[in-house]
Design a protein around this nucleic acid. Structure first.
Lengths: 218, 218
DNA sequence: CCAAAAGTGTTAGTGATACACCCATGT
DNA sequence: ACATGGGTGTATCACTAACACTTTTGG
């Protein structure tokens, strides 16, 4: 083996059942047979890195057209026992209800895992995941990436809950609302959400110009 | 050419004669013969990426043991006409007086260029440089990387001037001092710098624990 | 009328910015 | 005494964080 191999790995996050989850696939072969890993694959010779990441992701999840950001490039010579493999990693946060995991394409078994329950992954993927979680949480502070997880109309409480799940801490309701509304990226609608025995919540939508996901808001 | 090739490129900054400069080398061969480019080279099969960056840098500049940070990985398939070459880029800021540029090793002609005078570079290196400048400036806000450019004892005015040069804007003297002193990373010494017909300036040094360069200070 | 979540304002603290004058020295 | 750069304090503003009660609905 005298080649340097280049892969892309994609750390894909979602929020489901009030839990931050990451998409993992199970390895069918050695090394790390049966262990879970972050999905990814080899970059083709004529293929842009981000395109490759999107293609791999599409092949394994059916998800398309998402905003994706480069995370870091991991290149320890020992990270893959089969040879020299460097990996350019990407991450994203998506609405899991908008995709269907193709259960068995590529003979892989893709599943969402609560990040709190992820144990030993193959390769150096625990390292990659930890790094991605930090970046994701940090990115929440100054971008709109979280908004991709909500329907077009949503309540401020739903948005806040989302932030709390991803950040894994409680936020103050009044401060959260004040902050979000001051950013001038939300439009109040005349509709409201009635469900349960309590006061209905106003529904908001994003201003059109704010719909570029991942856009920086500072 | 059926291989994917991996290089590391290093954007090395310094401040000299009150100017922010970047280290460039001149290409001796096609493509982009005679144009300036960011120094770099191929990663060996058994070599860690950052190690490779440090080795390349050492071979071309003689500089050793520096703090270096990964910038981004560029992988457009057309970025090198000779084949598929992806590059993992690093950047750093160093004291140019501590190194000697080996003028002609590797048949290269390494020189410091004021960033304001950099014109068309080979490959996509203008893009890489622009990206590096942004990151460097941003990093100044919350790390101690700039401190590597100063002698052990320095005045606050020297430090401020350094920041102004890198950021390319004036800073308020009182606010700068207030901020820096409030960070609790400087120790006042009993010495002062006498030069010129004016009041001598107090000399400061960094607290030992702050001497890990590139360390985050927030 | 009770339970449940929605909605709302004020205060205190912190950090950023803007701004002008006196101080210590060499010549 | 004057020219030069060193050194200092205050007021305003914006943002963060802490904190508790009233409103609207369904049952």
């Amino acid at each position: 083996m005298d080649k340097m191999l280049v892969t892309v790995d994609i750390v894909l996050f979602t929020v489901e059942h009030e839990t931050l989850k990451v998409l993992l696939v199970q390895r069918k072969f050695e090394p790390w047979k049966d262990l879970m890993v972050i999905p990814g694959g080899f970059v083709r010779l004529d293929e842009d890195l981000e395109k490759a990441a999107k293609r791999e992701l599409f092949e394994e999840t059916g998800v398309n057209n998402i905003y994706m950001e480069q995370l870091y490039t991991f290149g320890n010579p020992q990270r893959d026992p089969r040879g020299r493999v460097i990996t350019v990693t990407y991450y994203s946060l998506i609405d899991s209800t908008k995709i269907k995991l193709k259960a068995s394409t590529d003979a892989k078994n893709a599943k969402w895992f609560p990040i709190s329950k992820v144990s030993k992954l193959g390769f150096d993927h625990n390292l990659i995941l930890d790094y991605a979680i930090k970046r994701l949480r940090n990115k929440l502070n100054y971008t709109t990436i979280a908004f991709q997880l909500l329907p077009q109309l949503f309540t401020l409480t739903e948005l806040q809950k989302l932030y709390e799940i991803i950040l894994d801490r409680k936020l103050d309701k009044r401060n959260f609302r004040k902050k979000l509304l001051s950013l001038d990226i939300l439009d109040e609608t005349r509709e409201s959400k009635m469900e349960g025995a309590h006061r209905p919540a106003k529904l908001y939508k994003f201003k059109k110009k704010s719909l570029v996901f991942g856009r920086d808001i500072v």
